[in-house]
Amino acid sequence: MTTTNDNKPQDSLLGKPAAYADHYDASLLFPISRTPARGELGLGPVVPFFGADLWTAFELSWLTPRGKPQVAIAHITVPCETANIVESKSFKLYLGSFTNTRFESSDEVRDRIRADISEAVWRGAPSQSSVGVRLVMPDMFEREKTQELEGLSLDRLDIECTQYTPDASLLSAASDEKPVDEVLTSNLLKSNCLVTGQPDWGSVQIRYSGPQIDQGGLLRYIVSFRNHNEFHEQCVERMFMDIQARCKPVRLSVYARYTRRGGLDINPFRASHPCAMPGNARTARQ
């Protein structure tokens, strides 16, 4: 049975002392509606982008039926059309609750995570579907390679930066010149947690076709998030909407990879058109 979700970010356990449960407890998950933040961007129920939030969980462990600990890395894909995000500390506490719980197999663990996260992110929605979950077991850890974001680095530019809260007026494009196809990256993304104000460090990739975006202005715009308080997913959607509105690309995707906190990293991807999701390969800083 679907229930409504009236959770507010300030009601979560972010920034508050919390007891760590070590036996499975799905009730620890704290979904937060995407609607308020999207409303601030002028978005309604139908959003003008595709994509997903790509999570990587590095601290996952459980017991076999005989009590032997197992470890794995979990990759979770949450579609951007879900009704909610899951607050990250609650997700950490939820995964911690697996620690002294016995499961028959890694498949059971994967299926349980998929069912619980799916329920949380779709809570309050008229219809539901499943999130993607993939577990990487220790014998496959060597395949978890690091890979930097592809593209031309904006960080090479020697610019002056004075704006540290998001300012879309920094963005511009040469609409009277020949369109281009470009992939631009920066490692200078920083924002802050919406609730605690703790720093969130990241890298961002902008891939687009259309009028050439002024690179200096784009880098200043990315830097302007430095003192901004917003969740990762919301920052990327703000970037997408601002670039779309100010630069009017024909096609656009924005992909951010944030460094991990509490054994979790969150990597939102938004695109103007249906396309394959990025491979969720971590960067060196992750």
Rank of each mutant, 00 (worst) to 15 (best):
residue 1 M to K: 02
residue 1 M to R: 00
residue 2 T to Y: 09
residue 6 D to R: 13
residue 7 N to I: 10
residue 7 N to C: 05
residue 8 K to G: 04
residue 9 P to Y: 11
residue 14 L to E: 14
residue 14 L to Y: 11
residue 15 G to I: 11
residue 15 G to T: 11
residue 16 K to P: 05
residue 17 P to M: 04
residue 18 A to H: 11
residue 19 A to M: 03
residue 20 Y to S: 07
residue 20 Y to L: 07
residue 20 Y to M: 06
residue 20 Y to F: 09
residue 21 A to S: 14
residue 21 A to N: 13
residue 27 S to D: 14
residue 32 I to D: 02
residue 32 I to M: 00
residue 34 R to D: 02
residue 39 G to T: 13
residue 44 G to D: 15
residue 44 G to S: 12
residue 46 V to C: 04
residue 47 V to C: 05
residue 48 P to F: 06
residue 49 F to Y: 15
residue 50 F to G: 01
residue 50 F to Y: 13
residue 50 F to M: 00
residue 55 W to L: 12
residue 59 E to T: 06
residue 61 S to H: 12
residue 67 G to L: 10
residue 71 V to A: 11
residue 72 A to V: 06
residue 77 T to D: 09
residue 78 V to M: 09
residue 79 P to L: 05
residue 80 C to K: 05
residue 81 E to D: 12
residue 84 N to F: 04
residue 87 E to F: 02
residue 90 S to N: 10
residue 95 L to W: 06
residue 96 G to L: 00
residue 96 G to Q: 07
residue 99 T to I: 06
residue 103 F to V: 05
residue 104 E to L: 11
residue 104 E to A: 13
residue 112 R to H: 10
residue 113 I to S: 12
residue 114 R to D: 05
residue 115 A to I: 06
residue 115 A to Q: 15
residue 116 D to P: 09
residue 118 S to V: 09
residue 119 E to T: 07
residue 121 V to F: 06
residue 127 S to F: 10
residue 127 S to R: 14
residue 130 S to I: 08
residue 131 V to W: 01
residue 132 G to L: 03
residue 133 V to E: 08
residue 137 M to T: 15
residue 144 E to H: 04
residue 146 T to E: 14
residue 147 Q to L: 12
residue 148 E to A: 14
residue 149 L to Y: 02
residue 149 L to M: 08
residue 150 E to R: 15
residue 151 G to W: 13
residue 151 G to N: 11
residue 152 L to V: 14
residue 152 L to T: 15
residue 154 L to M: 05
residue 155 D to H: 12
residue 155 D to E: 08
residue 166 P to H: 12
residue 169 S to W: 03
residue 170 L to I: 04
residue 171 L to N: 06
residue 174 A to F: 03
residue 176 D to S: 13
residue 177 E to H: 12
residue 177 E to W: 04
residue 178 K to C: 05
residue 181 D to Q: 14
residue 182 E to K: 15
residue 183 V to S: 12
residue 187 N to T: 13
residue 187 N to W: 01
residue 189 L to A: 08
residue 189 L to K: 04
residue 189 L to E: 09
residue 191 S to L: 04
residue 197 G to R: 13
residue 198 Q to C: 04
residue 198 Q to F: 07
residue 201 W to N: 11
residue 203 S to P: 05
residue 204 V to N: 10
residue 205 Q to C: 05
residue 206 I to N: 00
residue 208 Y to D: 01
residue 208 Y to I: 01
residue 209 S to F: 08
residue 209 S to N: 13
residue 210 G to Q: 09
residue 211 P to L: 03
residue 214 D to Y: 00
residue 217 G to C: 07
residue 220 R to K: 15
residue 227 N to L: 04
residue 227 N to R: 15
residue 227 N to G: 09
residue 229 N to H: 13
residue 230 E to N: 14
residue 230 E to K: 15
residue 235 C to V: 13
residue 244 Q to N: 14
residue 244 Q to L: 11
residue 245 A to E: 15
residue 253 S to E: 15
residue 253 S to M: 07
residue 258 Y to P: 07
residue 258 Y to E: 09
residue 263 G to N: 03
residue 265 D to V: 01
residue 265 D to L: 02
residue 266 I to F: 03
residue 267 N to M: 01
residue 271 A to K: 03
residue 271 A to N: 06
residue 273 H to P: 00
residue 274 P to W: 02
residue 277 M to K: 13
residue 279 G to C: 04
residue 284 A to F: 08
